[in-house]
Design a protein around this nucleic acid. Structure first.
Lengths: 332, 332
DNA sequence: GCCGATGATGGCAGCGCTTTCATAAGCGGG
DNA sequence: CCCGCTTATGAAAGCGCTGCCATCATCGGC
């Protein structure tokens, strides 16, 4: 053993296996093009000397990092977790890794993370949030795949995969009207998407002859614990709403807990509707009526897009609407 | 504009600013050593031509990737989220990014992800889970920082930052004994750490004169929804337990919901204790008695360790016990 | 006025891989 | 038995940066 502590390189493998480094590289990236016997010899050598490829060097030479940046606001109680989990798994299967960026609610951090991603020459950036104009501009000029998920901007920077939040709001309004509710109270998280859902809801509700719904708003991310304050607020309303429209299933769960704690029956005394179809929605008592987004589908579409080249043409094809499903359960 | 579509390189900046590439590199990595005037000229040039550093090249040359791999089993309902979130934030502040790896419960995926991390020449790997012997061996030989968090193995591969799960179990047992509970039922997630807590609990409970607790186990990760089945199981027990020890706050919350749904009062008819001090624990009705782990501290210690060199000496210093706090609230 | 510090910068040799382009066999048909 | 193909491999030029060493002013002290 010539354990000079230096990590074995591809050249070491090549020399030891009696081939050129080019062949070893080919074996690594495209095994089919090297002859069976050679391949076997290289495989054995790699194992023998414990060679570990250096993707930094590989990425530099090939200009492909096999890294994808995923930018989300939070990890805890996040409505995106399911999507991200699917994403990470499918990417891993394809030999690509995930660079995780937590943007919080600040466009400043988003900008920094996008810069970092660009610096690492990621193969794509998948993002859920808003950004400042300068960064958007940079991205438009740039050639990296930039995939906005969970929303459908008018004019996507590159590709958008999501659904109409406004339509969600409208569907919820129609659903509640059909069920005969009269006094909805809507709790909205700060943030553009939530506002769109609220607008859609109010729009449709009023169009259907309803009175302007009462409103409240909570900080992002809309979590379980915010229900205490939000419910206290509700109790002050007169008349009491007969249904509460929540920005997330976590918040909906919180409202249910608070309502029950106050001795109210859900949905009889007060109904609750969530958003996101988190796993707990189907498991709560009562089960939570909510809106399901197919996170796995978003992940799949995004990954498929990474494979394709980015082209500026047919801009309208650059919007993929994955839709949503309102799932009627017990809580509303 | 010579928009030949080629991304500007550090050399372009150097030429344009009338300095050598070395100076630009210095400006980027250690601004203080370049003269004020020069620095300003370089800054302007970078801005002007829109230069974005290439960290692949930088990493290759310097052998520092400024990437840290974080390996966790899951994202949803994960007890680690808080830790990871802190980690990502502190790392970002230090100009380092996170490569996220989802290991699930399979050591195979863990092995693949560790390989990938090594290939990217990460500055450190932070891991929460078990791995196969071969990978462990590789890691021991390797020179990368390898930080195991949330547990304290006898013989850490490199560094371990966590706490004694057995001690947690024991403390819970003592606490419940003090409160006068007689028939604990313990629900354990599959997995080594949960088993340690259970063992510690049973050990201490029996030592304290109690009868062997009844037990149940749930799949990893222990989530809200598993409470339905687990609670049904509890109802079959005779005598009914007077307290349920849960592997996570999510599960504890689920048990509370089920119990209340069944018309039982928590904690009077049946008490519940969780683990992890997720934010909802303090916000549930009743608030959940649980064990707090200082995720932020784990993150800080881990990051501090990344700075230090890995040295094989004083092996006992390579274990950092951050302890835990039992937080008595309303549920038990 | 000379000397060793000190500070600012340039030159250049890699870091470990990928990727043309070129070359060398092997092969079947006329 | 030679030709044109296909298939397997090699040679070498980078990819864009960092880090060491050398260079060259400048400057205060004696």
């Amino acid at each position: 053993m010539d354990d000079t502590q230096r990590k074995p390189t591809l050249d070491d493998v090549a020399q030891r296996a009696g081939v050129s480094s080019a062949t070893v590289s080919r074996f690594l990236n495209n095994p089919d093009v090297v002859a069976k016997a050679t391949a076997e010899r290289i495989r054995a050598t790699i194992h023998e000397i414990g060679y570990i490829p250096n993707m930094l060097a590989g990425g530099l030479a090939s200009n492909r990092s096999r890294l994808v940046a995923v930018l989300i606001p939070h990890l805890s109680d996040s409505i995106f977790n399911d999507t991200i989990e699917n994403m990470a798994e499918e990417l891993a299967a394809a030999g690509t890794n995930v660079m995780l960026g937590l943007t919080g609610v600040s466009t400043e951090r988003t900008a920094k993370l996008i810069m970092a991603a660009l610096s690492r020459r990621v193969d794509a950036i998948i993002s859920t949030g808003p950004m400042d104009a300068e960064t958007e501009d940079l991205l438009r000029r740039s050639k990296v795949r930039f995939i906005q998920i969970w929303e459908l901007p008018e004019d996507p920077i590159d590709l958008a995969i999501g659904f109409s939040h406004r339509a969600v709001g409208r569907d919820i309004a129609r659903f509640l009207a059909t069920r005969g509710y009269r006094h909805p109270h809507i709790i909205t998280a700060e943030g553009k998407r939530a506002a769109l859902r609220r607008d859609g809801f109010c729009e449709e509700w009023i169009a259907g002859g309803g009175a302007t719904p009462t409103q409240d708003s909570v900080a992002i991310p809309s979590r379980f614990g915010q229900a205490r304050r939000a419910f206290a607020e509700i109790r002050r309303l007169d008349p009491m709403p007969d249904v509460v429209v929540c920005g997330s299933d976590y918040l909906a769960q919180g409202i249910i807990v608070e309502a029950q704690f106050a001795g109210l029956k859900v949905p009889d005394d007060i109904a609750v509707i969530g958003f996101g179809n988190a796993s707990l929605a189907g498991e709560m008592r009562p089960t939570i009526t909510t809106v399901d987004i197919d996170g796995a589908r978003i992940a799949r579409e995004a990954i498929a897009a990474i494979g394709r080249e980015r082209d500026g043409s047919d801009n309208r094809d650059n919007i993929v609407d994955v839709g949503f499903r309102l799932i009627a359960r017990e809580s509303a």
